[in-house]
Design a protein around this nucleic acid. Structure first.
Lengths: 179, 179
DNA sequence: TGTACATCAGTGAACGCGCGTTCACTGATGTAC
DNA sequence: TGTACATCAGTGAACGCGCGTTCACTGATGTAC
């Protein structure tokens, strides 16, 4: 049965939110279209009324996830926000909750093997986060932001893949000197 | 037809080498048992004479890949080897050849979602590389090595997932100040 | 050292399963008059 | 504003495909005597 235009838009947002969480939690291949639609409260068949296919959804979910993840950086005074962002990033809470965490740490390796279109969307997200970290500084600030982000992404990738004690050591080592 | 014990061992090594390359190039799910056996010059059926299953092979391939990747760090004087390692790590050549590159950058995100046994093997590999970077320094050297490795892994994950120009910027920014 | 036989590495067909996508169908919504 | 009809969001069955794993089979290798 057809639903109203407003409800359709709400459905689309639910699918996007579920995709953003499940892709980050399980990886691109680990989250099926059926899983995502189920998490959004629907069956799989209606998916193609909203997206052209899984890759189309993935691109939209990545853009949305990066925008949400970078939001705190744009909303507060530059220096404070950046430091709060770093502290949150290198926490055990972030390690334990990839579904709400950094899209780069969760999906970077998958995107590396994906289409140029996806990599463009991913690159735009990375630039967005780096821009937020750099504030309105110049070239050097941007360089520093890219270095900071690399350190954080690497620390989180390693921490999630390592046993708990080594993970704690990695996060502490990277938090110790904020580059 | 049965083959000799020596040839069986050579087959096992070919499977391990092919797995190490294909897992890093395509990810854990992207490299099938059939692909790997084909790359090793055999058909898929014989696989189970060598390994209990795909996960067993993956653990062995990860250990082998980390050992080979860390080898240059153990074979040369500590300071020189570490600097050469960093330069090679943050290069375009490494970005373009994941199959022969750092297992942590290529497989970290996949291993984060895998079994504790796999994460233990991965953690041992990470510790091996960090140990090679730290040389025979103390706690502080190990902290620094974990930070260095995090920076390198993050830079490579981001560089591979981003378009070429942003990737070059990331690698240059991280090479500029070797933490 | 020879011989007879058990072992087993590798082959290729087959299995059950979950995937992304397609499709006929439904009935409430949107729209042209 | 009402009405008649076209649209289309969502359902659930079905598709073709590739996956990891199993299995009967083969014949050269390993081994007990």
């Amino acid at each position: 049965m057809r639903v109203s235009n407003e409800e359709k838009e709400r459905s689309r947002q639910r699918i996007l939110a579920a995709a953003g969480r499940l892709f980050r939690e399980r990886g691109i291949e680990g989250a099926s279209v059926g899983d995502i639609m189920g998490a959004a409260g629907m069956t799989h068949g209606g998916f193609y009324r909203h997206f052209a296919g899984k890759e189309d959804l993935l691109a939209a979910a990545i853009s949305e996830a990066f925008a949400a993840f970078a939001r705190p950086l744009a909303e507060a005074p530059s220096g404070e926000a950046a430091q709060a962002f770093r502290d949150r990033y290198l926490s055990q809470a972030h390690r334990a909750a990839p579904g709400e965490g950094c899209p780069a740490a969760a999906l970077g390796a998958d995107v590396a093997r994906a289409s140029p279109a996806l990599r463009a969307a991913f690159g735009a997200g990375v630039a967005q986060v780096a821009g937020g970290l750099a504030g309105d500084g110049g070239t050097e600030a941007r360089q520093g932001a890219l270095r900071d982000l690399s350190l954080m992404v690497g620390a989180m990738v390693l921490a999630r893949a390592c046993p708990d004690d080594l993970a704690a050591e990695i996060l502490a080592a990277c938090a110790a000197r904020p580059a």
